[in-house]
Computed example of a mutant assay.
Amino acid sequence: MKEITPKEMESLLKKENIHVIDVRETEEVKAGKIPDAVNIPLGLLEFRMHELDKAKEYIMVCRSGGRSFKASQLLENHGFKVFNMAGGMLEWDGPTE
């Protein structure tokens, strides 16, 4: 599985249109999320995979990197191109909304 650091992701956000999926619970996301990230809680990801496009690359994010690691494995096993943001939002110094 591929990983990306929060610093690498922050640089990508400035240059490219990237697809970020935040797998934290809705209540956690209310405290702030990466701009334009889509919130799909980990427990619902399996049921909402049909909303995603296998032609796109996704970066998975959670609080510390554990849930996003599981989400990345799930999507990768279903043929998606996925990166896990190591360290999660605890390591994120970039902008939030």
Score class of each variant (00 low, 15 high):
K2N: 15
E3A: 09
I4M: 09
I4L: 08
T5P: 03
P6I: 03
E8C: 03
M9C: 11
S11R: 13
L13F: 09
L13A: 06
E16G: 07
E16P: 07
E16A: 11
D22R: 02
V23I: 07
R24L: 02
E25P: 01
T26A: 14
T26P: 11
E27F: 12
E28D: 12
V29P: 00
A31Q: 14
G32N: 01
K33Q: 13
K33P: 05
I34W: 00
D36L: 02
A37L: 01
V38N: 05
I40M: 01
P41R: 00
P41G: 03
L44F: 11
L44R: 09
L45W: 03
F47N: 12
F47Y: 12
R48P: 06
H50E: 15
H50L: 11
E51I: 07
L52E: 04
D53L: 05
D53R: 02
K54C: 02
K54M: 07
K54Q: 10
A55D: 15
A55V: 09
A55N: 13
K56Q: 09
K56F: 04
E57V: 09
I59R: 01
I59T: 10
C62L: 01
C62G: 00
C62E: 04
R63C: 04
S64C: 08
G65Q: 00
G66Y: 09
R67I: 00
R67S: 04
F69R: 13
F69G: 13
F69C: 11
K70Y: 11
K70L: 15
A71D: 03
A71L: 06
S72M: 15
Q73D: 14
L74C: 08
H78S: 12
G79R: 04
F80I: 10
K81G: 06
K81R: 13
V82S: 03
V82F: 07
F83M: 10
N84V: 01
N84L: 05
N84R: 06
M85R: 00
M85N: 05
M85S: 04
A86M: 13
A86E: 14
G87V: 08
G88L: 00
M89D: 06
L90D: 13
E91I: 06
E91M: 14
W92K: 05
G94Q: 07
G94L: 04
P95S: 14
P95K: 14
T96P: 06
E97T: 13
